[in-house]
Write a protein that binds this DNA or RNA. Structure first.
Length: 440
RNA sequence: GUGGGCGUAGCUCAGUUGGUUAGAGCGCCAGGUUGUGGCCCUGGAGGUCGUGGGUUCGAAGCCCAUCGCUCACCCCA
């Protein structure tokens, strides 16, 4: 029995690449989510929550069948029958959100612009775990559906940066590029692919393969042998048509007007097929190789591809786990240190007092005062120690004599002073004391 | 998926070239104070050294496998 229990404990752990979020950590999550909700309110975005699993064909169509995310990282759910649709845990959020927007007719009405955000949505990818790369990770982000203007791109980037700034994030960098419209990109590819083929023998194995399957991805290869070739490759920015160029220039000037510093990076290519035009990434120098905090861009043809109207769109997703790592690495995120402690510890001695304490706790809770107490008939010393450990400002002591008098001793833990307070007056006293406390 | 590193108490870590009952600090519990916390003193609980095999008279330390974490690549938030 004993050894059995030990074996069970050993086996039962959170699945590889997942994490339990304990109370102390959860407080930090709440702080981040709070900032996200607040920024969304300021920008006028509406929250959307979509299912954790979706039809596999949604992701195949949107993200791209050849991408790593779809071809090898999806958690496929077991089907109950051959006839049933194939489902997978969602590996990303843009496709589901667009699907929901189309399904609920959000894009067919009068409004030419739909602003959506999510604050803490889990994503699932079967990857080899690393710090900042989990199999279940959480993102906040936006999707702005409708506008083709660079104003929308700028608003999206501004939204993301506001959150980072409000959280006190340091050492982050905005990388910006344009993949151009379909025409621009085709024109560019016609030069890029032959160029890569000419230099094929000098490229890394991965890049040789990708020259044929996904030539854009060769550009952000980190293999040293690819560096020289990539550096001299034809650049998309030189192949943008007039409209694309104007869009990109306009975006840059908009960002400058709101003092968002960015770094143009012609090698920034995102690994999801739906991106068109603007792409951007926010990276942190306080993280290791998994340094992307946020990624996003335009996806002007995705809505139509998924059966919706012709509807340009732009959005971003940001990883909460990575953001927290970056914030914690510098200890410079004051918002994160929200300690939650009860205001009152009701200390009871004896069974009768415990019953009274239970009743008083209920009254305190009903009055909106956080309070807790002992559940195990422990000694006074043990209860005092616990109150001290919890950091409650007040302890309300109920023993035999207090019961007889209908008044407990309310002790201020900071000053060590205590006074008799009638059972019925405790709420008033605590409220008053914490009020004066705040203003002193 | 490829290639490295690591895994000793709740936490942070010691543990000499394999050698007898595996240690410290912090934390936890109790006592010193029969109904008053923090500081101090004393005592206690808690580990089959991630797990399973193997080598050996003898393994926390060596070998293999496995699980987990981690670093780089890959990919990406």
């Amino acid at each position: 029995m004993e050894t059995n229990a030990a074996k069970l404990r050993e086996r039962l752990q959170a699945p590889r690449g997942t994490k339990d979020i304990l109370p102390e950590e959860a407080a930090k999550w709440r702080a981040v989510e709070g900032v996200v909700h607040e920024v969304a309110r300021l920008y006028g975005y509406g929250e959307i929550r979509t299912p954790s699993f979706e039809a596999v064909r949604l992701f195949k169509r949107a993200v791209g069948e050849e991408t790593d995310i779809v071809s090898k990282e999806m958690y496929l759910l077991q089907r109950r029958s051959e006839e049933e649709e194939e489902f997978a845990l969602r590996p990303e959020l843009t496709a589901p959100v667009v699907r929901a927007a189309i399904q609920h007719g959000m894009l067919t009405g009068q409004s030419d612009c739909v602003r959506l955000y999510y604050a803490s949505a889990p994503n699932f990818r079967y990857e080899k775990p690393q710090l900042g790369r989990l199999r279940q990770h959480h993102q906040f982000g936006t999707e702005l559906l409708g506008p083709a203007s660079p104003l929308a791109d700028a608003e999206t980037i501004s939204f993301a940066i506001s959150i980072f700034r409000n959280l006190g994030l340091q050492n982050f960098r905005v990388r910006l590029n344009s993949l151009g419209s379909k025409e621009s990109r085709e024109a560019w590819k016609q030069q890029l692919v032959p160029y890569l083929r000419e230099n094929k023998t000098k490229l890394s194995n991965d890049s040789q393969r990708r020259t044929e399957t996904n030539p854009l991805r060769v550009l952000d290869s980190k293999a040293p042998e690819d560096h020289e070739i990539v550096r001299n490759a034809p650049r998309i920015l030189d192949h943008l048509n007039a409209a694309d160029r104007a869009h990109f220039e306009e975006l840059k000037s908009l960002l400058a007007s709101i003092t968002i510093a960015y770094h143009e990076d012609p090698l920034l290519v995102r690994g999801i097929d739906y991106y068109t035009g603007t792409v951007f990434e926010v990276t942190s120098s306080d993280l290791g190789s998994q340094d992307a905090l946020c990624g996003g861009g335009r996806y002007d043809s995705l809505v139509e591809q998924l059966g919706g109207p012709n509807c340009p769109a732009v959005g971003f997703g940001a990883g909460i786990e990575r953001l927290l790592l970056a914030l914690e690495s510098r200890n410079d995120a004051p918002l994160l240190s929200t300690v939650r402690r009860p205001a009152v510890y009701v200390l009871a001695l004896g069974a009768e007092a415990a019953q009274k304490a239970f009743e008083l706790l209920s009254n305190l809770h009903a009055a909106g005062i956080s309070a807790t107490g002992d559940l195990n008939a422990r000694s006074m010393k043990a209860q005092m120690r616990e109150a001290n450990r919890l950091g409650t400002p007040f302890v309300y002591v109920i023993g035999e004599s207090e019961l007889a008098q209908g008044a407990g001793m309310l002790k201020n833990m900071q000053t060590s002073e205590q006074e008799a307070v009638a059972f019925g007056a405790i709420i008033e006293h605590v409220n008053h004391s914490s009020f004066t406390h705040h203003h002193s």
